[in-house]
Design a protein around this nucleic acid. Structure first.
Lengths: 202, 202
DNA sequence: GAAAAAAGTGAAACACTATTCACTAAAATA
DNA sequence: TATTTTAGTGAATAGTGTTTCACTTTTTTC
């Protein structure tokens, strides 16, 4: 008598789950955590509030998944750059630039990675996310120091500073918004700053 | 018939006001905004919840005052260093070091300056606070660049990066906490990072 | 097609907290 | 001291947003 889901049904359920995640991500990207209530998620994804709880046990669980999947995606991109070709300095520049550029596309999402969320559970996930980012930068730093390209420095601290430097520099403009012209210059200045900080050369 | 407050009474009222502010600051410093409900503030300051509203029109107003007075105090300290003696590089190092050291004393308070608060009104105040901090650093940067001591760079971006770099590096340890031994090394590494970033010399 | 199981609904229950307000206590005036 | 004005109380109110649940609809099994 074991009930079995048809392939079609299974697919529809998976689709719903994805739609819920996508809706939540979209809401965070547009208006931050604040704008992403369960009701809003339900509305955007075309389901009822109750249905959300069939897919996720709680609001926290939903947003933890939103955050961590977004971060995994970003980290994959960064890792490809960091483990690519070129000198450590070149790869660092490329990684910072890529990260900064992408963050400017969805400033609120970037903000959510840094912002204190209401829920302590999500907070824990957020901390892990930042660690993942800085871990990527630690890789290049270690390589550059080992090869003598970078001066000796605390890899932990420098990686955290790099992440902090551009999140601060990027997130601040969130309020103004809509100044696409200056983006290029902003990204360039951030990249320069981080390069000097790490390489110690003007 | 105009009612006049006695000097004693006036003093007691001012004292209460200060006690409320101090209680709120203490609660934020210990447990972040999250722990600082009006009820908690009332309890700590030994007044009733209703009484708080005789001194401050709203929770937001209270916390805006807490934040801005704390920031003013920190900025005063930084300004004294920045406008003091020594080369631009020395003063920058001293300012970063002082800021980092003091932030380590009350990590949650430092966190509150960065964290997204629930209330948009407080958020606005928070943004101003960060700008005040970075304005202080802009001063040294301009001086150093003018004298040729620092290479050319975007003063706005570099100042934001400096603030971001050490807030990230400082705030992260908040979770662990209670590792006073490594503090000195941490502060040193942050100062080095910022110096390299700004001066471009290892 | 009827019975059983699961998915989906959305209004109501619940939790959390800022804010109010009818009231009491204290202080200033006369 | 009696009266008026202000300070202070804290339970009730109100707004917000998550979670539940009795119920309907859809899907699967026989």
């Amino acid at each position: 008598m074991a009930y079995q889901r048809s392939a079609l049904m299974q697919e529809r359920l998976a689709e719903n789950r994805q739609r819920i995640l996508a809706s939540a991500r979209q809401l965070v990207a547009r208006g931050g955590f604040r704008a992403a209530s369960i009701n809003a998620v339900a509305e955007v994804s075309g389901l009822s509030t109750g249905a959300i709880y069939r897919y996720f046990p709680s609001k926290s669980a939903l947003f933890i998944e939103v955050l961590s999947s977004a971060v995994r995606h970003e980290c994959d991109i960064l890792l490809a750059i960091v483990d690519g070709d070129g000198s450590a300095g070149e790869r660092l520049r490329a990684a910072v630039e890529s990260f900064a550029r992408r963050a400017l596309q969805g400033p609120h999402l970037a903000y959510a990675f840094i912002a204190e969320p209401a829920d302590p559970e999500v907070e824990a996930a957020r901390i892990l996310c930042r660690r993942e980012f800085s871990d990527v930068f630690k890789r290049v730093l270690r390589q550059g120091i080992a090869s003598g390209e970078f001066p000796k420095q605390s890899v932990d601290v420098s990686a955290a500073c790099v992440v902090g430097a551009f999140t601060e520099a990027l997130v601040r403009p969130t309020e103004h918004s809509a100044r696409r012209r200056q983006d290029k210059a902003l990204v360039g200045a951030i990249v320069d700053f981080c390069e000097r900080a790490v390489t110690g050369t003007a």
